[in-house]
Amino acid sequence: MFFGIVLIKSEAASWFRIYEMFQFKSFHMFGIIGSSVGLGIIVIQFIKRFRIKSFFGAELVIAPKERSVTRYLLGGIIFGLGWALAGACPGPMFALLGTSFTPILIVICSSVLGTFIYGVLKDKLPH
């Protein structure tokens, strides 16, 4: 809930902001991502160094992603194309659904379909 409020209030869910970001004309989006990553690096290093336990007392593990270049680069490019066109990534999409922008429902449904298509084609794609 908190994340949704942040996404709307920071305007990260706005198509205009995404467009602006890809024009490199504003520091706003880079500031958001940059500061959250910068702080995130510190937090995660802190967790690792001091072996912070979770609320339930277990050791924290962050599952590393498998190594590959093709899938991340190709997948990333495809995602980027869609991100710029629809102006929304999966988080903001749902935040927007909570506002009155109903057309976003089309984007959500087709992104579920897109995920499904990936699942079907998965074994035929280079990874």
Partner: peptide
């Protein structure tokens, strides 16, 4: 909008994450 959504859905799974997961 459909094309945008398809690209996002397909790309995000192919890449194994989106803005929140990767970036």
């Amino acid at each position: 909008l459909i094309i945008g959504g398809l690209l996002v859905g397909f790309g995000t799974r192919y890449a194994g994450g989106c803005t929140s997961g990767h970036a």
